[in-house]
Design a protein around this nucleic acid. Structure first.
Length: 581
DNA sequence: GCCGTTTTCGGCCCGACTGTTTTCAGTCG
């Protein structure tokens, strides 16, 4: 069983929480910082260790000799003695208990000592029996909130897929923007950074007087519960089970607030530390010059750019704000110029009613044209995927003629738009394809994907995909890792080997833009960019409505620091054809 | 426990809101 970065991060985070329970100063922050860094790491920590031992691990920012040894201990023995000691003292299910809003290490410890509460079930029983309300520091209000928190943890199961819930939050943003006195509303938080999943939504509003907008917000029809309501900040749950926070600030502080509420937390902390070094203080109201421990003068705050510049940095795009090296680049004015959301010229993957799509070739073409695209690649499934009505050689040849017919019609109408002939070919167990080379040779673009044998051993799975890339007609590997967010993990593949083979065979890797796929994920996108492997963004649309998902693919590309030159379909059709095989 | 243009000791981001312990600790982001 492979040890993942996520499980190491979870263990370190729990150690931090245990230390927090005992009021140990500063250590909790050190452990938590490392946990966050490892969770965001784009390399497997096991690999780092294999290459350079605990010394290489301690090269990760925030990791010193001690924590490096702790991680090494886990990699070598599967256990951490320190963690087990701590767990023995207070054997509780920290992961689920801390997921309850309002419960932190201190309260969890108190509940364990007083009522032997170890998990959500114990907690729920104690709340129901009335025992909880008798614990010092807990009252009827706490019990009520804890019960609601438990319910939420049980039903929502954690993070939501951004693309699926975004329309609901955009609606609230639009409604708030219309409240009298509101000058501007922005979606901030991880949604602005285009993280693939979000825990909650944050909105920022600009207004002189916060009263009316706060009042409106907590009384919206969608609101089922108000968690908190103050003068400038409120937090509610809306109907689909999403938590939404809103914060109101004045114009002069709006940039500072945007910066602060967009995060990430690690990026913000790093910025504040830079400010301190310059004798400044950064908070959500602005960047201040300090004198004798007091704010002397606000030197930036109305725009994000002004704050970055005052700190000697170039503006950092929200999708890059994860404290994974972007600040060093900003300091040296060497940030990449990320691919723009409106840079896309084409869509590289979609399905028609010839296989498992809902619409015709023509309907997709007109819809894509309306979205401002210059070309689309039709990539219906092939024969092995019988459940999707996959095309065999004969039907694919027929299908190509149908594409020709649509192009002829568009030309007659004077439209400058191209429909390209493509296919989503199945990669069979041995790495061969379910379509003859003779037919593939007639297509403009060939994408190949894995739809079977998800559980092959790592080596076999890797070999299988590389074999497909070696086929001279395969231009793109579609959804290269097969993961479906919140539903199915990626198949076990050696991504470094895949990326290396992609480079060697000049095969592009897809960023599948479907909101619950976003496959490649951001860290692999970064690796491709670094290696010079080209990327292809496809919506994998199975209906006209899905074509708008392209923006989620671009967001993912930007999170991976991709520039326009890295994305084959950010180029006009002729240039795109040259960039693929 | 980590770190260093204040560098091997002495610091460690900062503010809003809640509930309850009538002055603040705990949690969150």
């Amino acid at each position: 069983m492979r040890i993942t970065n996520a499980e190491i991060a979870q263990l370190l985070s729990e150690i931090a929480e245990y230390l927090e329970m005992d009021d140990v100063p500063f250590k909790p922050r050190a452990y938590q910082k490392v946990a966050d860094a490892i969770a965001a790491l784009d390399e497997e920590i096991v690999e780092i260790h294999k290459k350079g031992g605990s010394k290489a691990i301690s090269a990760i920012p925030g990791v010193g000799a001690s924590i490096a040894k702790t991680i090494e201990e886990y990699i070598q023995t599967g256990r951490i003695a320190q963690y087990e000691e701590l767990k023995k003292k207070i054997p509780v299910d920290l992961r689920s208990l801390t997921a309850v809003e309002g419960l932190g290490p201190k309260k969890i410890k108190k509940l364990y000592k007083a009522l032997d509460i170890k998990n959500l079930d114990d907690l729920e029983k104690a709340a129901a029996s009335g025992a909880l309300a008798k614990v010092e520091g807990f009252g009827s209000k706490s019990v009520e909130n804890i019960l609601k928190g438990i319910e939420f943890v049980k039903t929502s199961g954690g993070r939501l897929i951004l693309g699926n819930v975004f329309p609901a939050i955009e609606h609230i943003k639009d409604v708030l923007a219309k409240v009298k006195g509101v000058e501007r509303v922005d979606i901030v938080g991880s949604a602005r950074r285009k993280k693939e999943t979000v825990g909650d939504f944050d909105l920022l509003a600009m207004a002189k007087d916060s009263g009316p907008v706060m009042n409106f917000f907590v009384h919206m029809d969608e609101v089922v519960h108000v968690h908190a309501q103050g003068e400038t900040k409120a937090s509610v749950r809306i109907k689909p089970g999403i938590d939404v926070d809103v914060r109101v600030v004045a114009r002069e502080s709006y940039g500072a607030a945007l910066l602060y509420f967009t995060g990430s937390k690690a990026h913000n902390v790093a910025l504040r530390q830079m400010a301190i070094k310059k004798g400044l203080k950064l908070n959500e109201y602005g960047l201040f010059r300090m004198k004798g421990g007091k704010e002397e003068k606000m030197i930036a705050g109305d725009t994000e750019e002004g704050i970055y510049n005052a700190l000697g940095l170039t503006y950092v795009e929200p999708e890059m704000r994860e404290d994974v090296g972007e600040l060093e680049l900003a300091q040296n004015h060497k940030l990449p110029v990320l691919v723009d959301y409106d840079a896309m010229k084409g869509d590289m993957q979609m399905h028609t009613n010839w296989s498992d799509g809902a619409n015709t070739i023509e309907e997709l073409a007109y819809a894509a044209m309306a979205l401002g695209l210059e070309y689309i690649v039709i990539t219906d499934h092939t024969k092995r995927l019988t459940v999707a009505n996959g095309l065999d050689e004969a039907r694919l040849l027929e299908h190509m003629k149908a594409v020709d017919a649509v192009n002829a019609k568009l030309k007659k109408e004077g439209k400058k738009f191209a429909v390209l002939k493509g296919s989503e070919v199945d990669i069979l167990k041995d790495g061969s394809l379910d379509m003859s080379d003779a037919v593939l040779a007639k297509l403009d673009v060939v994408g190949a994907s894995v739809h079977s044998y998800f559980n092959l051993p790592r080596e076999a799975q890797t070999k299988r995909i590389i074999a497909a890339m070696e086929n001279p007609y395969v231009d793109i590997i579609f959804h290269p890792t097969g993961r479906v967010i919140n539903r199915r993990p990626a198949y076990d593949v050696d991504m470094d080997a895949i990326i290396e083979a992609a480079k060697r065979t000049k095969t592009a890797l897809e960023i599948n833009a479907f909101p619950d796929r976003l496959d490649l994920k951001d860290e692999y996108v970064r690796k491709c960019v670094r290696a010079g492997v080209k990327l292809s963004i496809g919506t994998d649309a199975h209906a006209v409505a899905h074509l708008s998902y392209l923006a989620w693919g671009v967001g993912q590309a930007r999170r991976g620091w991709a520039e326009r030159s890295d994305i084959v379909n950010a180029w006009p059709v002729e240039k795109m054809k040259k960039m693929i095989k």
